[in-house]
Simulated assay, not measured.
Amino acid sequence: MALWLLDSQRLGQTKSVKRIAGRILKQPALEGVVEAQSRLGRLLCHDCDSQRDRRIGFELLRQAARAGDRQAQLELGQLYCQGQHQELTKARHWLEQAAAQGSVEASRLLQRLVAKR
Rank of each mutant, 00 (worst) to 15 (best):
G41F: 00
R66Q: 13
Q82A: 05
I56P: 00
P28S: 09
L110M: 06
F58R: 11
I24F: 05
R19W: 05
E31A: 13
C45H: 06
A99M: 01
W94R: 03
R117D: 13
P28L: 03
V33W: 03
W4Y: 10
Q84E: 14
L44M: 11
A106D: 02
A91V: 12
Q101G: 07
Q73M: 13
A64H: 11
A64W: 07
A98K: 01
I20Q: 09
A106I: 08
A21Y: 00
R54I: 00
V33K: 09
V34W: 07
C45N: 11
Q86P: 06
L5I: 11
Q13M: 11
L109Q: 10
K116L: 11
Q78S: 08
L6W: 03
K116Q: 15
E35I: 15
R62F: 09
W94P: 11
V104I: 09
R10F: 10
R19A: 10
K90L: 15
P28E: 13
L11R: 09
L74G: 01
K18F: 03
G41V: 00
W94V: 06
I56A: 04
R39W: 08
S16Q: 14
I24A: 08
V104R: 08
D53P: 01
R10P: 00
A115C: 04
F58K: 09
I20M: 11
A29T: 06
R112K: 10
E96G: 03
A100D: 13
Q78C: 10
W4R: 11
A67H: 09
L3N: 04
Q27P: 07
I56C: 02
G57M: 08
V104E: 12
S103Q: 07
A72M: 09
L95E: 04
G41N: 05
L79W: 14
G68R: 02
R112N: 12
G32L: 06
L61T: 00
I56F: 05
W94A: 02
C48P: 02
V17Y: 03
D53L: 08
L40Q: 01
Q111M: 10
L61H: 04
H46G: 10
Q82E: 15
G83D: 15
E75F: 03
L5M: 14
A64C: 09
L30H: 14
S16A: 13
V34C: 03
A72H: 02
D53A: 11
G22I: 02
L110N: 07
L110S: 06
E75S: 14
M1G: 08
A2W: 01
H85Q: 11
A100K: 15
R92V: 07
S103V: 00
G57Y: 04
A100S: 15
G12M: 13
Q37N: 08
L109E: 01
S103W: 01
C81V: 00
H93Y: 13
V33P: 02
L43D: 00
C48S: 15
V104P: 00
R23P: 01
D53Q: 15
R117Y: 10
G22A: 06
A64K: 13
H85S: 11
G68Q: 02
A91I: 11
G68H: 12
Q51F: 04
D47P: 01
L30K: 15
K15Y: 13
L25C: 09
R42E: 11
L30Y: 10
